[in-house]
């Protein structure tokens, strides 16, 4: 199924369908993640791969046009050779790999048992992914927020933000064919019904990350999709009235600083950077508050960045 989807993407010359197939591909992959017990990852992949990045693709295609030329035959040989070589190396490696699903594989030994056995006592949340993400490897997650922030600054630097004076009613919409969407009563009614629950769900995911799958990142993406949906149906202008782009542009930095501030506070209290034990009197409480705050930072940055990037793209297509 997956392989078939990918082959279709290769053959596809209409970009619109290629993008939709990619989205479909992500959705299948995320269900496979689900089957492989990676609930958090599945959640994120569905929200990001099938959701937000598809929207970015569509917004970009609306600007650059939809058709790609077929590749000439002779130009396919070199890439094919490189790909086959790389594939051969990978295949060669698989024969020494631990068997799929084996509990004795080295990957399951050494480091991981401590996360599984001690994290409840050391960090607190039953969702081990959250403990590892926010505490054991919190520094990586800070870097991850940094990546998102960098992407935002980059897009901002290249395209400019949606900071043009709003108020003039614009006619076109980012995604071709959306124009008719605004008139469609059904869409409007349904989206009215959907958007509010989506935003509330985002908040639920944000605070529930300790216990179930979820956390700041997923929540941010979901929140952003809610706003983007609103912008698609009602147009950019009302959406920008709702969230003024000038203020929105500050938020990614706020999220990143909030995250780092927790770490710096720990340093001021005499512990290492990002050591939440020192945030409150009792280490376990400290961990709890620390994780809550940094997840909030992640959520703010991610949501603001996604909405910002979407606004930037749509401003360009007008």
């Amino acid at each position: 199924m997956l392989v078939a989807t990918v082959i279709i993407i290769i053959r596809m010359e209409k970009l619109m369908s290629a993008v939709l197939m990619t989205s479909f591909f992500s959705l299948i992959v995320s269900s496979i993640f689900m089957v492989l017990d990676a609930v958090d990852v599945a959640f994120t992949e569905a929200a990001v791969g099938a959701g937000v990045s598809t929207i970015f693709f569509l917004a970009a295609i609306a600007i650059v046009g939809r058709v790609s030329k077929p590749t000439q035959r002779k130009k396919q040989i070199l890439p094919l050779a490189i790909v086959l070589c790389t594939g051969a190396v990978l295949m060669y490696a698989t024969f020494d790999m631990p068997r799929f699903g084996s509990p004795d594989a080295p990957a399951q030994q050494h480091v991981v048992p401590r996360y599984l056995n001690e994290s409840m006592a050391e960090v607190g949340p039953p969702n081990i992914v959250t403990s590892v993400l926010a505490s054991y490897r919190g520094y990586d997650t800070l870097g991850e927020v940094g990546v998102v922030f960098t992407a935002f600054i980059g897009v901002f630097l290249l395209l400019g933000a949606g900071t043009r004076k709003s108020g003039i009613e614009r006619t076109a919409n980012p995604v071709a064919g959306v124009e008719s969407m605004r008139q469609s009563i059904v869409l409007r009614e349904v989206s009215d019904l959907v958007i509010a629950p989506v935003l509330i769900f985002a908040l639920y995911v944000q605070w529930h990350g300790d216990f179930g799958p979820g956390g700041g990142f997923q929540a941010g993406v979901i929140f952003a999709s809610g706003i983007i949906l609103y912008a698609l149906i009602y147009g950019i202008v009302p959406a920008q009235k709702l969230i003024p782009p000038r203020k929105l542009a500050y938020l990614p930095a706020v999220g990143l600083l909030l995250y780092a501030a927790v770490g710096v506070y720990g340093m001021l209290m005499g512990a290492n950077f990002l050591d939440y034990d020192a945030v409150a009197h009792d280490p376990l409480h400290g961990q709890h508050y620390g994780i809550l705050i940094i997840e909030l930072g992640v959520g703010i940055t991610v949501a603001a960045v996604m909405i910002n990037i979407f606004f930037s793209f749509s401003e360009r297509s007008l």
């Binding site: 990586d140 940094g146 990546v147 992407a151 980059g154 630097l157």
Partner: peptide, 28 residues
């Protein structure tokens, strides 16, 4: 970040920040 880290995956994370910012700088 890349220079000081002692963790293989962390290298990847910071490498990506540096790459993304470099792309943006060049494109200007």
């Amino acid at each position: 970040g890349i220079t000081i880290t002692g963790d293989a995956f962390n290298v990847f994370v910071f490498l990506e920040i540096s790459s993304l910012s470099t792309y943006a700088l060049i494109a200007r």
